[in-house]
């Protein structure tokens, strides 16, 4: 039983609208997977289902062989696409909070990353810029020793230099037994860090491939293929 995450015939409807339709997909350990698709294609819905924040209309999901629930939440480290931390809290207090909440949280790791990105742990969240807040959230998520990291738009608001450091952090922090699913629009920035990609189109998986297979078969990067496939 090696599969970390499995979607089996997962459909999610919001009213009469299909956000996801009959999605089948598995994540094996040791991969960094890009979840790519235009706005409204179902990326966030897919991630939220795996976190148990949404329940599928039909079909089922398992995390490490078990249904989504408290057990699976302990294994998953999730970066939402929104800020959910309390604005009045100091960064150091939030780190304490995470440390209390999660057994697998590594406090030293988070302080190390804060230092590298020149973030003062004694500052309150509301005094930080948007990009810096995003960095704090990502640090919190990557400081957990999880089996699966679900990162919803992790680098959207951060500057290119910090982006490089964050990708580096993602590369060095994940272990061979874990996997990372990253949803992003900044494909060319993350392309070389990924080994597999999924294209999501109107709630269905339209392509699932390794990055190098795309380059080999199309003689173009994933970024270029995306622009071609989803041309407006």
């Amino acid at each position: 039983m090696n599969t970390i995450l499995e979607y089996s015939h997962v459909t999610k409807q919001f009213g009469s609208m299909h956000a996801l339709y009959d999605v089948n997909f598995t994540i094996e350990p040791g991969h960094i997977i890009g979840l790519l698709g235009p706005n409204g294609s179902g990326k966030t819905t897919m991630i939220k289902l795996a976190c148990g924040l949404l329940v599928p209309t039909s079909g089922s999901l398992t995390v490490c062989g078990e249904p989504v629930g408290p057990g699976s939440k302990a294994r998953i480290s999730y970066l939402p696409d929104k800020n959910y931390l309390s604005e009045w809290m100091k960064v150091s207090r939030i780190i304490d909070l995470f440390h209390d909440f999660y057994d697998n949280f590594d406090r030293n790791k988070s302080y190390e990353m804060l230092k590298r990105l020149n973030i003062n742990p004694e500052q309150k969240l509301k005094t930080l810029s948007k990009g810096t807040r995003e960095k704090v959230q990502l640090i919190l998520v990557m400081s957990r020793n999880a089996d699966l990291y679900l990162l919803d738009e992790p680098i959207g608001g951060v500057d290119p230099a910090a982006r490089d450091y964050i990708l580096q952090t993602i590369l060095t922090n994940y272990n061979e037994n874990g996997s990372i699913l990253i949803s992003t629009h900044l494909i060319s920035d993350v392309e070389q860090v990924l080994d597999q990609i999924i294209f999501l189109k109107n709630g269905s998986i339209s392509l699932q491939s390794s990055v190098d297979d795309i380059r080999e078969n199309h003689q173009k990067s994933v970024d270029e293929l995306f622009r071609e496939v989803f041309q407006c």
Partner: peptide
């Protein structure tokens, strides 16, 4: 060092 996926 190369900032690439370890599998690659």
């Amino acid at each position: 060092e190369a900032s690439v996926n370890p599998n690659t």
